[in-house]
Amino acid sequence: MNSVLNSKKTIFLLVFPGLAIMVFAILAPILLSLYYSLTSWSGFGAKEFIGLANYKEIITKDATFWRSLWNALLLLGVTVFIQNVLAFILASVLIQLTDRLSLILRTIYFVPAILTVVVITKLWVNIMNPNFGLLNKLLKSAGLEDLAYAWLSDPKTALGAVIFITVWHGFGWALLFYYSGLTTVPKELEEAAVVDGAGPVTRYLKVVIPYMMPVIQAVIIIDITACLKQMEIVMLTTAGGPGNTTQFVAYHLYEQAFKFSRYGYGNAISILFVIIALTITLLARKYLSGDNGNE
């Protein structure tokens, strides 16, 4: 049997299709991007090789680039400290219910997550519309007219509104991640804590949360990539504006290449983006999993 399992031909046949597609559609374009990033190409005509000038410009002059990284960080903060905390609390409640009720509720809470980002985004654009949107009508009927904004076009609220839509859309995923994590907490651990006289809060702080740390870390790592990648919602709501208040890296590079015909420059942002995403994820993985290396 080992002859089949070790046959080079078999291995090649099994591995080649998937790997070839990944090389063709991920690795090759990134290498190509590296090459374009060293040119001042507009996307048409001749390419001029300009060395690292694009990178220099991004790092020293491109305020929008730095703004977009800062926005990703803000989004991450809201995701981790608000969305994740709410999802964790809700998951902790759901796990106490009967299996049937919890399944029904999880099904409901996950509905937004299965819808295309275009439906979700356009839905919220309408809810936040200053003329007929549900949000301002609710505020007015509650006598809070002063709080009614043109949510997505006012520089004061635009970023908050974009972050809200993103966090709302991703809530179902966070909930399911934590729910499935909580199903693995051994009942004996919790029962032992109850026997020791621990109330529900202490039980959570001392037993459940420490046990869930690997899950929490995994979700945070997923969140980091997701926040860096944020693009579609921005594109469909504010297009980065007003000014550059709601810019995110992916949309910035898209705009530079396709709107301002700075294809080489866009590719340089793209390469920095790959480097940042890889570095942060690898660091997070190493640092976060280093915490429970002795378990």
């Binding site: 559609a25 090759a28 374009p29 990134i30 374009y36 992916a250 590079l253 898209y254 790959v274 890889l278």
Partner: peptide
């Protein structure tokens, strides 16, 4: 490693490629 690469970084080069 493919899990970590954002789709968006291949948008520009893939267009030409």
């Amino acid at each position: 490693l493919g899990m970590v690469i954002p789709i968006h970084t291949t948008l520009l080069p893939n267009f030409m490629w």
